[in-house]
Write a protein that binds this DNA or RNA. Structure first.
Length: 745
DNA sequence: GTTCGAAGCGTTTTT
DNA sequence: CGCTTCGAAC
């Protein structure tokens, strides 16, 4: 890293990294001291500003690399920032405090672990461990786990942690909500158990560090001296504990708070996991004298898409206020397409067909995405893409490190690295099946309690004193021998050989080799991949730390495939063409969301819609179906309110199904579908949408000759409220909605 | 302790 | 519909 400023550009007299920035971007970068809020709308060059600002602080000599704290939410964002800062500075920079909230806290906590009763080598638990632990802790309370599942309890604890509440800070009033009033005590016991096994869950990384900085002024002062500048990405996604942690670090007596937060309140979509939009809305009050810079020039999308998105998001209240403007002159573009289809199957066909056409026109599939509200919506699209031979990838499924076989292997490694890791030991003690079930494990727990030691010590003890007998004795003995041999190998030949030997020795690999299920070979491949990855690290501990904090799979974005993912998963990404299916009331906005959170949730859903639209560079296509298959049965659906919230000027409707909500929006029933069948009251005086619907309600009876947009002419053979059985001349017998046919003349 | 079948249930997800 | 989970029978 060089401390001298870069040579100025010969043309402008500015360092060349400041060239081609717009005035707002420049301001966000060149405002170095004092609190700064950068409101960065979608596609306004946020990452560029953040990284350039980082480099600028270094290159102007305001700080050395290790004196800047830069926090992100995801490892991906951290990696990108690290790479781009490196690129600006002409090479990788060492010693940066740049990472996710959690990785930075882990790094800090390893230094100060003793203040919360841990040792520096503490384990970071995965969700399986957490659940196992909370189950154990709940047991003595005899909670009805039907009503109060351990997952729910874990959720309550996590939310408390997100809010910075240690067990003693949970008020009795807040306690009563779950588990019949024992949640607070379970939480306290859970924390005690974590300390006892020298472990942390994810929430603890933040909670412990915040607690340490609250109670140890010397530690806090140390970081105050260290960090001259703080950069925070995605500030709208911070939860309370992250906010408290940042505030502790940023507020330095007698010195300015050099904290720069980048975020977009319109893209806050994670309130359900503890994010508090209020943090960003409150920034100017939290940090008096804060400068606010708005980045509103969007270099990503066409003017039409931007106007559509802006019109939509304008329906939200309580925004900081920000309007995306097109940053490129050339990008007028096409209107947002809204396609009305008959049912969810047709929706998938329409999208797949459109993708085929895009491909035929030379558009790479990697520039096409289908973004939906929920993961299960991918199915019909997968089927359609598959049958047409269009390559696709589903982003965000089960991640590599979440696979059972990988977690098993990791548990083996954890016991190898730290024999006192009871939770890891519990996971693998009977995998593969070796006849050590709950009964044997119970005995081991008792023994461990008596000797006040870990389970592995209890095993050794039982081997020695003859408590163990028969099958489980032999099994445990051979397991422990496996660990002993691996420990020797680890010292002599390193972690890769040791782990492979261990997994072989204890019969884990054999278990999958003998498994006849079709997934087994894939699992063995995954394990092979895992073994390969261990070699990339200095030590077993280093590898375990990495996998505890980095759960994401490797990016395979380079392949030319259509991306299928949730709207949440798409945040931060962009594609030339974006398909947004399932814009129907109840699906999007999600009914469940609305039921739980009312107006606040509706606004969050709307932000999600905004995020979806703004992912598109050139083409955005919204779809809604009149009937959707949900689980086993078909349900009628009306178009999402979000569709009509997009200003009509920027929308082009197509498709044959009902196109406007107006017909039915005021009606109580979601089944009201415009003028329909004979036995259905015709609500209100709704205007007709198209001539297709001009059949008078009473005209349709058995024997009526009707016309259907998709199936053509046919004779009605049965009427069931609003559904008809029709014998079509060409398409055969079909069941169709009465609203989708007209009486043939 | 294991295995098999019925019952239940069904957002969004990172670390 | 298709998955996971739990309980009963071997």
């Amino acid at each position: 890293m060089t401390q001298s400023p870069l040579p100025p550009s010969p043309v402008s007299g500015q360092p060349d990294y400041l060239e081609r920035l717009n005035p707002e971007q420049r301001q966000a970068i060149e405002t170095i001291d004092g609190p700064l809020l950068i409101l960065a709308g979608a596609g306004t060059g946020k990452t560029r500003v953040l990284t350039t600002r980082f480099a600028h602080i270094l290159l102007t000599g305001h700080a050395r690399p290790h004196q800047i704290l830069a926090v992100t939410f995801t490892n991906k964002a951290a990696r990108e920032m690290r790479d781009r800062v490196g690129a600006l500075l002409g090479g990788p920079v060492e010693g940066l405090w740049l990472g996710t909230f959690h990785s930075i806290c882990a790094r800090m906590l390893r230094r100060h672990a003793e203040y919360v009763g841990l040792t520096t080598g503490f384990t970071i638990l995965d969700t399986d461990d957490q659940l196992r632990l909370v189950k154990q802790v709940m047991e003595p309370y005899r909670v009805d786990t039907k009503r109060w599942p351990p997952q729910g309890m874990l959720g309550v604890i996590q939310r408390w942690k997100d809010r910075g509440l240690t067990p003693d800070r949970v008020t009795p009033a807040e306690d009563s909500e779950f588990g019949g009033g024992c949640a607070r005590r379970v939480y306290a016991d859970y924390q005690a158990r974590l300390i006892a096994v020298n472990a942390c869950d994810f929430g603890d990384l933040m909670l412990h560090m915040t607690e340490i900085m609250r109670t140890r002024p010397d530690v806090l002062a140390q970081y105050h001296r260290l960090f001259r500048y703080i950069l925070v990405d995605e500030y709208q996604d911070t939860n309370t504990i992250q906010y408290l942690w940042l505030r502790l670090l940023a507020k330095r007596a007698g010195q300015p708070s050099n904290i720069a937060c980048v975020g977009d309140d319109d893209q806050s979509i994670y309130s359900w996991r503890g994010a508090e939009v209020e943090n960003i809305l409150r920034f100017e009050r939290d940090f008096p004298g804060a400068k606010v810079v708005r980045l509103e020039r969007n270099y990503r999308s066409t003017a039409q898409i931007l106007a559509a998105a802006a019109g939509l998001i304008a329906h939200n209240d309580g925004r900081l206020g920000k309007t995306l403007r097109p940053g490129r002159e050339d990008a007028h573009g096409e209107k947002v397409q809204v396609v009305s289809v008959w049912d969810s199957d047709e929706e998938a066909r329409v999208v797949a067909g459109a993708i085929e056409r895009l491909r035929a026109d030379g558009h790479p599939l990697s520039e096409i995405a289908i973004l939906m509200r929920a993961g299960f919506q991918t199915r019909p699209f997968e089927e359609q893409l598959m049958t047409r031979g269009l390559p696709y990838r589903v982003v965000g499924g089960l991640r590599f490190y979440e696979r059972a076989e990988i977690r098993d292997c990791l548990a083996y490694m954890r016991v190898l690295a730290q024999p006192a890791d009871d939770l890891a030991f519990e996971r693998i003690v009977n995998v593969p099946r070796r006849g050590v079930g709950t009964a044997a494990l119970q005995k081991l727990h008792l023994e461990a309690r008596q000797i006040k030691g870990p389970l592995t010590a209890a095993v050794a003890r039982q081997m020695a004193d003859g408590t163990a007998k028969g099958k489980s004795k032999a099994a445990l003995q051979s397991l422990m021998q496996g660990f002993e041999r691996a420990t020797e190998t680890l010292a002599r030949e390193g972690q890769v050989v040791a782990v492979e030997q261990l997994l072989e020795d204890v019969g884990y690999l054999a278990m999958w080799r003998e498994d006849k299920s079709p997934e087994a070979p894939g699992r063995l491949d995954n394990i092979k991949e895992l073994l390969r990855a261990i070699g990339d690290f200095q030590s077993l501990e280093g590898f375990l730390e990495h996998v505890a904090l980095v759960t994401e799979a490797e990016d395979s974005a380079a392949e030319d495939k259509v991306s299928l993912m949730t709207l949440h998963g798409a945040k931060g990404l962009e594609f030339d063409s974006v398909f947004l299916p399932g814009w129907e009331e109840g699906v999007f906005p999600s009914q469940r969301s609305l039921d739980e959170g009312g107006l606040k949730s509706l606004e969050e859903e709307r932000r999600l819609a905004y995020v979806g639209l703004t992912r598109a560079r050139r083409r955005a296509t919204v779809l809604h179906a009149a009937r959707r298959r949900i689980y086993a049965n078909w349900q009628d659906a009306i178009p999402s309110r979000f569709i009509e919230e997009i200003p009509a000027d920027y929308v082009e409707h197509s498709g044959q199904a009902m196109q406007e909500r107006r017909l039915t929006a005021a009606q109580p029933s979601v089944f009201a579908f415009g003028p329909v069948s004979s036995r259905r009251p015709n609500y209100g005086h709704a205007p007709r949408v198209t001539d297709v619907y001009d059949a008078s309600p009473t005209d349709i009876t058995v024997g009526t000759r009707v016309f259907h947009q998709k199936f053509g002419y046919g004779i009605v053979t049965d009427v069931d409220v609003d559904r008809l059985q029709v014998q079509f001349e060409k398409a055969g017998e079909k069941r169709v909605m009465a609203s989708f046919v007209e009486v043939a003349v």
